[in-house]
Amino acid sequence: MDLCCRNTREVKRRHAAPLNALRTFEAAARHLSFSTAAQELFVTPAAVSHQIKHLEAYLGTSLFQRSHRSIVLTPEGQALAHTVGDVLRQLDTALDRTMSSPSCELRVTTMESLAAKWLAPRLHRFHRARPDIRVRISTSDAHLDFVREGLDVGIRYGPGGYAGVRYEPLMDASAFPVCAPSLMAESPYPLAHPEDLRHHTLLHDESASGRPGVPSWSDWLEAAGANCVDAHRGPVFASIYLAQEAAIAGHGVAMGIAPLVEEDLRQGRLVRPFGTVSENAYRFWMIRQAGQRAGAAEDAFCAWLSEEAADTLPR
């Protein structure tokens, strides 16, 4: 009798897991809202509630504590949410890879300035070497969920220490002033010495604001011994890219980040009026999914990125 009961329980445990209910639970646990989960899944809140009750009955335990206005996860719900979220993301990734075309596609995310100023001018070399790999680039400064967003490789500018991903240093990001060539000989105030900056507009970007170790105009002017220059005057731009474009247009002098100004220096759109360089606590990092075995295409692209980074102008 005991053996029969035990075998019956084992048979019950072998019943197929309710995948639809698990997906519904994952969305509800992530949002802590049946209504928001319903919007994401394109179903009604009643349907979400029904699926959660079905899963709770299947498991024989409560997953949420419900009140009139809110829901919270029970300890059992918290444990399941963590596991189910990882499993479903891995499943989505596997399905995406299975459905992909024979011509492999890599999804790459990076900041707008690096995409425009460093990656785009080089990408033709990778396409020439690997025409079988299609690279799709999106731009963002945020630290994204690589699995949920369907991303393969990322490049970020920051201090490192990113959670939930593999990351490795790609390039240093030393800083120095850059300007249009015309400002070097502009009369009556040519840029011959750092002190001459007091006669020119300083262009700022928000990336250096309130971030310890990220060079600002104040840091560079102090290192150059040009304390007579007001480090705080001049417009502030939302991105390094915009400040650099303003410098190219001849509207002032920007604090350039080495990899982001390399191509403009090569093409003569920008020049370095002074030799003083400020080191940067931030750098560029190459980021990949954690816990996933990388494919050959991803490995090839990351190896190419490293080669191109090593070939970047001395910083």
Rank of each mutant, 00 (worst) to 15 (best):
R9G: 01
E10Q: 15
E10L: 15
E10W: 15
E10A: 14
V11P: 00
V11L: 15
V11Q: 14
K12I: 07
R13Q: 11
R14H: 13
R14I: 10
H15F: 15
H15G: 03
H15N: 11
H15K: 15
A16K: 12
A16F: 12
P18I: 09
L19M: 15
L19H: 11
L19A: 12
N20V: 10
N20E: 07
A21P: 02
A21R: 05
L22Y: 08
L22H: 05
L22G: 03
R23K: 15
R23E: 04
F25D: 00
E26H: 06
A27E: 09
A27M: 12
A29K: 09
R30L: 08
R30V: 02
R30G: 10
R30A: 13
L32A: 10
F34M: 14
E40W: 07
L41W: 05
L41V: 02
F42H: 11
V43I: 14
V43F: 02
T44D: 04
T44W: 10
P45W: 08
P45S: 07
P45C: 11
A46P: 00
A46D: 01
A47R: 13
A47I: 06
A47P: 00
S49N: 01
Q51Y: 12
Q51W: 08
Q51K: 15
K53M: 05
K53Y: 08
K53G: 02
H54I: 01
L55H: 07
E56H: 13
L59W: 09
G60C: 01
G60K: 08
G60I: 03
T61F: 06
L63S: 02
F64P: 00
Q65E: 07
Q65H: 14
R69F: 09
R69Q: 10
R69G: 02
S70H: 14
S70E: 10
I71A: 06
I71Y: 04
I71M: 09
V72E: 04
V72Q: 12
V72H: 07
V72I: 09
L73S: 01
L73Q: 03
L73Y: 05
L73M: 08
L73V: 01
L73A: 00
T74P: 03
P75S: 05
P75R: 10
P75Y: 07
P75N: 06
P75K: 12
G77Q: 04
Q78L: 01
Q78A: 05
A79F: 07
H82K: 15
T83Y: 11
V84A: 12
V84L: 08
V84K: 06
D86I: 13
D86L: 14
D86H: 15
L88P: 08
L88F: 10
L88R: 10
L88V: 10
R89G: 02
R89T: 03
Q90P: 00
L91S: 09
D92E: 13
T93L: 11
A94V: 03
A94S: 11
D96F: 12
R97M: 03
T98D: 01
T98H: 15
M99D: 06
S100V: 04
S101I: 03
S101F: 10
P102E: 05
S103K: 14
E105I: 11
